[in-house]
Design a protein around this nucleic acid. Structure first.
Length: 261
DNA sequence: AATACTTACAACCGCCAGTGG
DNA sequence: ACCACTGGCGGTTGTAAGTAT
């Protein structure tokens, strides 16, 4: 991001203007909230406003802390690596911003969401920010969205999208991700309320020296792929890609999703 | 310089699930 | 079983600041 810091922080409310419709946080409020949390810890947000004297609701306090005041919040430019990761994760998870943000240390779901909506979404589409007046960040060309699930070693899958793939020749980034992850299904919210795979262990697994490909995703382990399978049931079934594995334990996890040649 | 338009993002909103009484 | 409360999520909105005309 070209912008450094919070461009709004220095002018929270225009002097002399009527009360803004949005109640922007003032530095004094930030200070109060920060001090309160540092003293009492996070949680019980409903009581924060009462005990701290802030004229804010619990949700507002929680959001402010989580998205802005929390330590280790990384602000400012998104690195190329972060952009790539967001794009790749979004391609698989859709608008699961909290999940995506979880893979970006210091980034919040709100920031990732905003960044996607303002930078990546438009730039990745076939029609890059026509007439954009702002300095645009350099975005990798992700126009090639042909689904391609293969394995680096012992390739079994066809590596081509089947005829029944839900993706089309149109750039899937243009469509709402919620189209790919239906919100009304029983799986909604299950991603964070049901028992979930251990995300960290999945992404740090070294159980195999092989790499796993899904499209342009290069999985470090079957567990990482399992992670995506869990959070995106349509991950393989919708795309109907043919792939198989020769790691028995993984097959146990994935057998219902596998298509063997 | 003034104005209109665009962009970026903080904050809000509504919904849902979990939890405890 | 029911209800109220709380926390978390994704979607949307409002507006300061940047840019073009």
């Amino acid at each position: 991001m070209v912008m450094t810091g919070n461009k709004r922080s220095s002018s929270v409310v225009k002097a002399g203007n009527a009360q803004p419709k949005k109640n922007l946080w003032k530095p004094e409020e930030d200070l109060i909230l920060r001090q309160y949390v540092e003293t009492h810890g996070e949680g019980n947000w409903a009581t924060v406003s009462k005990r701290s004297g802030l004229k804010r609701g619990g949700k507002s306090c929680r959001l402010r802390w989580k998205n802005y005041l929390r330590p280790n919040i990384k602000r400012g430019d998104m690195s190329q690596e972060e952009q790539d990761l967001i794009i790749r994760m979004h391609k698989l998870l859709g608008n699961r911003w909290s999940l995506i943000a979880g893979r970006l240390p210091g980034r919040t779901d709100n920031e990732v969401k905003n960044y996607w909506n303002t930078h990546l979404n438009k730039n990745i589409s076939c029609c890059p920010a026509a007439g954009s007046k702002r300095k645009s960040t350099t975005i990798t060309d992700y126009s090639n969205d042909g689904i391609n699930i293969t394995k680096k070693k012992n390739k079994v899958g066809t590596g081509k999208t089947s005829s029944t793939a839900t993706t089309t020749t149109d750039d899937p980034m243009i469509t709402s991700s919620t189209d790919r992850i239906p919100k009304d299904t029983s799986s909604d919210h299950q991603h964070h309320h049901h028992k979930e795979p251990n995300i960290e262990s999945m992404f740090t697994s070294t159980s195999t020296e092989e790499s796993w490909f899904y499209d342009d995703m290069d999985f470090e382990s079957p567990s990482e792929l399992q992670y995506y399978q869990y959070y995106l049931p349509s991950f393989s079934s919708n795309f109907n890609a043919a792939f198989a594995f020769d790691d028995e334990p993984f097959i146990g996890y994935m057998d219902s999703l596998l298509l063997f040649d």
